[in-house]
Lab assay of single mutants.
Amino acid sequence: KITVTFNGEEKARRYYKKMQKHNLKVEIRVENNQWVVHVE
């Protein structure tokens, strides 16, 4: 499981979509004013 933190929504969403293309289970959320993407 990987957790990647971004300081911008745009970058986070781009990464999220990229990971989805690989058929990975991805989850995006905001934690402590940071955009966090969890990849299983």
Results as ranks from 00 to 15, higher is better:
K1I: 13
K1H: 14
K1Q: 11
K1S: 14
K1G: 15
K1D: 09
K1T: 13
I2L: 11
I2F: 15
T3I: 12
T3N: 04
T3V: 11
T3W: 04
T3F: 06
T3Y: 06
T3P: 02
V4G: 01
V4F: 07
V4D: 02
V4A: 06
V4W: 03
V4M: 11
V4T: 04
V4I: 12
V4L: 10
T5K: 13
T5E: 05
T5N: 05
T5I: 15
T5F: 12
T5Y: 13
T5R: 14
T5L: 09
T5H: 13
F6I: 03
F6P: 01
F6Y: 02
F6N: 01
F6E: 01
F6M: 02
N7E: 13
N7P: 10
N7D: 15
N7S: 13
N7H: 09
N7K: 10
N7Q: 10
G8Y: 12
G8W: 08
G8K: 14
G8M: 12
G8F: 10
G8T: 15
E9T: 02
E9L: 10
E9A: 07
E9I: 08
E9N: 03
E9G: 03
E10D: 11
E10S: 09
E10T: 09
E10G: 08
E10K: 11
E10Q: 10
K11N: 13
K11T: 13
K11P: 14
K11S: 15
K11D: 15
K11Q: 15
K11E: 15
K11A: 15
A12V: 03
A12G: 02
A12W: 05
A12C: 08
A12F: 07
R13P: 04
R13Q: 07
R13L: 13
R13W: 10
R13N: 06
R13F: 08
R13D: 04
R14L: 12
R14Y: 08
R14A: 14
R14F: 09
R14C: 12
R14H: 09
R14G: 04
Y15G: 02
Y15Q: 02
Y15A: 02
Y15V: 02
Y15I: 02
Y15L: 04
Y15H: 03
Y15S: 02
Y16R: 04
Y16P: 03
Y16W: 05
Y16I: 07
Y16E: 07
Y16D: 02
Y16Q: 08
K17T: 10
K17M: 09
K17S: 08
K17W: 08
K17Y: 08
K18H: 15
K18I: 12
K18E: 15
K18D: 12
K18T: 09
M19V: 06
M19N: 04
M19W: 05
M19A: 06
M19G: 03
M19K: 02
M19L: 08
Q20I: 14
Q20R: 11
Q20G: 04
K21G: 12
K21S: 12
K21I: 08
K21M: 11
K21D: 12
K21T: 08
K21A: 12
H22Y: 09
H22W: 06
H22L: 15
H22N: 09
H22P: 03
H22T: 09
H22R: 14
H22E: 08
N23H: 14
N23Q: 08
N23W: 09
N23V: 04
N23E: 05
L24F: 11
L24I: 11
L24V: 12
L24R: 09
L24T: 05
L24A: 09
L24Q: 05
K25C: 11
K25M: 08
K25F: 07
K25Y: 08
K25Q: 10
V26F: 01
V26T: 05
E27K: 06
E27T: 14
E27Q: 09
E27W: 06
E27A: 07
I28L: 10
I28G: 00
I28Y: 01
I28S: 00
R29S: 11
R29M: 11
R29Q: 08
R29C: 11
R29L: 11
V30R: 13
V30C: 14
V30W: 12
V30H: 13
V30D: 03
E31K: 07
E31W: 04
E31M: 08
E31T: 07
N32D: 09
N32R: 05
N32W: 04
N32E: 08
N32S: 05
N32V: 05
N33M: 06
N33D: 11
N33F: 07
Q34M: 13
Q34C: 12
Q34L: 13
Q34K: 14
Q34H: 10
Q34A: 07
Q34P: 00
Q34R: 11
Q34I: 13
W35T: 01
W35N: 00
W35H: 00
W35D: 01
W35S: 00
W35V: 02
V36H: 03
V36M: 05
V36P: 00
V36D: 01
V36A: 04
V37W: 00
V37N: 01
V37E: 01
V37Y: 00
V37F: 01
V37I: 04
V37H: 00
H38M: 14
H38K: 10
H38R: 12
H38F: 11
H38Y: 15
H38P: 01
H38E: 15
H38S: 15
H38W: 07
H38L: 15
H38T: 15
H38D: 14
V39D: 00
V39W: 05
V39R: 01
V39F: 06
V39Q: 02
V39L: 07
V39N: 00
V39K: 01
V39A: 03
V39C: 07
E40G: 10
E40V: 11
E40R: 08
E40P: 05
E40A: 07
E40C: 10
E40F: 14
